[in-house]
Design a protein around this nucleic acid. Sequence first.
DNA 1: ACGATCACGCACGTC
DNA 2: GACGTACGTGATCGTA
Length: 610
Amino acid sequence: MRFDDLATALGATISDPGRIELLEAEGVPALADWLAGQTSVGASIVFDDPRPRRGTAQAFAIAGADGRVVAGMGETAADALRREVEGRGLQLVAHEAKPILVARFAAEPDAAATKVEFDTQIAAYILNAALRSQSIADVVAERLDLVLPPPKELEPVHRAGLEALSALAVRDPLARALQEEGLERLFREIELPLIPVLARMESTGIAVDLDALAVLDREFGAEISRLEDEIYGAVGHQFTIGSPKQLGDILFEELRLPKGRRTKTGYSTDAAVLEELVGVHPVIQPVLDWRIYTKLRSTYVETLPSLIAEDGRLHTTFHQAVASTGRLSSSDPNLQNIPIRTPLGRRIRSTFVAGSPETVLVAADYSQIELRIIAHVSGDEHLKEAFAKQADIHRETAARVLHKPPGEITADERSMAKMVNFGLAYGMSDFGLSSRAGISRQEAQEFINSYFAAYSGISYYMLHIKETARRQGHVTTLLGRKRSIPELHAANAALRGAGERMAINMPIQGTAADIQKIAMIRVADRLAADGFGARLLLSVHDELLLEVPREEVDRLIPVLRETMEGALPLDVPLTVDVKAGTDWESMTPVSRRDAILAEADEAPVDALAG
DNA sequence: ACGATCACGCACGTC
DNA sequence: GACGTACGTGATCGTA
């Protein structure tokens, strides 16, 4: 059975999944002649649970250039077929290759990564990052005009077989599209090499202190009970505190408190609204506190222990084809939103620990990377100068905007400048700044006006990027990553405004993501090339977290710093702040320079004092 | 009529 | 601006 092309073979297999050859482990050696004739194969693995180090493989399938598809059924056969492919040094073409690599690392922690020749999910993402999901069915429909059956309706072997063949069949159309759009290098030099790095990180996982979490669970539980009594006492009866509907009715009807914003469905009861009512009624503060404790308990304290794998570690899944700006995301659990802002939240962070007494955690984060990118892409001389002389950037901003010497800037003035600097990358509106800074929209607008007058290069850039985005229909990062923004032509003014903010934000956030990805690839390379035992654990947008044998720390830190700082030369220096510690909360700077960076780079405070 | 499941809105954790 | 998660709610589905 031979086909003119892979699309025809796929069509035939959709009509008759029975043409997928099912294999037991003993049948694998018989594939020798066929496999010897292949250099790369379409591949797909299907798990009963997709989370790394949790599920087991139910099926692994490969497809050849001749349209032949074979599938190993059950864990033993799936593993045997996967090992055969790996052992022969065949390259993978897959729609999401990462889980195949994770399966290998789980079985052989020190194995080299199987070469990924093409990942159709990531190609589809690079071509259109605006889509939230990049399913193989969508790609097959778009590129081949064929309809894949819903995965849930298929036996695991048939699903794996169809996916393996689909990946191979859409490879060439996607490769041509990447070429036409000028996205080949981004794909080949950044996204593909990142896959094994992420696979290794997922497979490694991070250690958490279960006993410490159990202590927090008891403490938080006691505090929540106490707050519930206080809330019911203040209102006079019980209700479901976690229901925004019930809470809104009680606050604004029953207790006749002054109404704040409205939502689509009723009264808003978010923290900003409740903060306004704190002195007005005794129920407000305990409700705010209850929200904080229950949020932390249900999202982290109770959930994290249930996600710990058999090796005693937490294995997140990184998503490389989700965020529209090019960032990574993380789920099950999301380890990119572990609390850090408040003392209570930091107690959760402190339960993330080095995995053994012989190791420590090392965190390296880019200092002010987005503002530095703004300085680079806008070419603003004043901002570039401030970074060149390594000034306190927020103080410098306040001084320039308010026409005062840096020495005369008050804490509030610096804090305001800090919020504007953070908001800048978001395409900040007067509305956004006023709600964050706790000032009126007019005051916010005045500060923004003064800001853009003081930094005319940035002002010009913001206008320019919006105009370019409208004209081209898309924006790009420094490395050519694209995001189309159809909202810019919306009739609705609010939607158009949102589109403009996306147009401003994506090149900045996306370029930071490009830089972080290059850094990850190069750091991983150096760890291997220089024989470090250190392992990458997490990427949190502008931070890398590693687990490092104590005796390697001094040798590793300059390597880490230089690799990250040199990832992409800009018109301003990139600087990296390195800290080390036995847990993720009490990390201490490794040099005096790191101490200064760490202090200057804290996230902005919620509200201005006074 | 009832429980399970889903989609949705809201709220909030991070960068 | 970009994400992911938990919860409550109301609609829908399936079973009895």
